[in-house]
């Protein structure tokens, strides 16, 4: 997990009693002049724009997720190690929120050479997963790896020493309505997945300010 490397982890302490999830990732502080007074504004990093094909061949962009809460992960269909475990846990999230229109799952393949749209379609159907609640996304590999690294603080790349030929982190990344990363949960762990399922309502109740 790369979180330690990040510039800072902000924990917002709120006045109200409901717990608030931290906003992860780097942020900038901007000092503005408002009515002659100095005002400090914190600007949080958000997920960069993106564009992928999903399992139905539809184009999915950041526009489709803005204003919604989503869980992102990186996987590949032939992955012999942690992916089936992550998918087993993601299925629980899907079972809990598949009918909630403001929650989505985005599973990005890091091996588009093998995972064509039709392969992703078959995989999604095997899981019983349907768009728009659960998208299986495909783009060029370097594009996806870069987004993983820079947008989601996850690792995804080719590595011939790894079983299956790729290394990637098993994180389930929780993103809020404004495109900010609010949590990274170990997708191979049942208890962290439970935590994720419990945390989603906290974001659902947040105002989209």
């Amino acid at each position: 997990m790369k979180i330690s490397k990040l510039a800072g982890i902000a924990l917002l302490l709120s006045a109200c009693s409901e717990p608030v999830l931290p906003i992860l990732g780097p942020r900038e502080v901007e000092v503005k002049q408002v009515n002659g007074k100095e005002v400090v504004d914190t600007i949080y990093k958000t997920i960069p724009d993106f564009s992928f094909y999903n399992q139905d061949g539809d184009i999915i962009t950041k526009k489709d997720v803005m204003g919604k809460i989503y869980v992102a992960d990186f996987f590949f269909v032939t992955c012999p190690t942690i992916c089936p475990r992550m998918k087993r846990n993601l299925l629980k999230v899907y079972e809990a929120y598949g009918n909630e229109p403001n929650v989505m799952l985005l599973s990005h393949t890091i091996d588009p050479d093998h995972d064509s749209i039709s392969v992703l379609k078959e995989y999604a159907e095997g899981l019983g997963a349907k768009a728009p609640a659960w998208h299986f996304l495909r783009a060029e590999r370097e594009y996806t790896w870069k987004l993983a690294e820079e947008g989601y603080y996850a690792t995804a790349m080719a590595d011939s020493l790894e079983p299956g030929g790729f290394v990637h982190s098993g994180g389930l990344i929780l993103v809020d309505q404004l495109g900010r990363v609010r949590g990274v949960y170990d997708g191979t762990s049942e208890s962290e997945t439970k935590q994720l399922i419990n945390d989603i309502p906290l974001l659902l109740h947040e105002k989209k300010d």
Binding site: P80, T81, P84, K87, Y123, E125, G126, L127, G128
Partner: peptide
């Protein structure tokens, strides 16, 4: 275990 599960339950209609 990763694929076939803790209880040998498999994974949906995939495994």
């Amino acid at each position: 275990l990763n694929c076939h599960g803790q209880e040998g339950e498999g994974l949906a209609n995939l495994i």
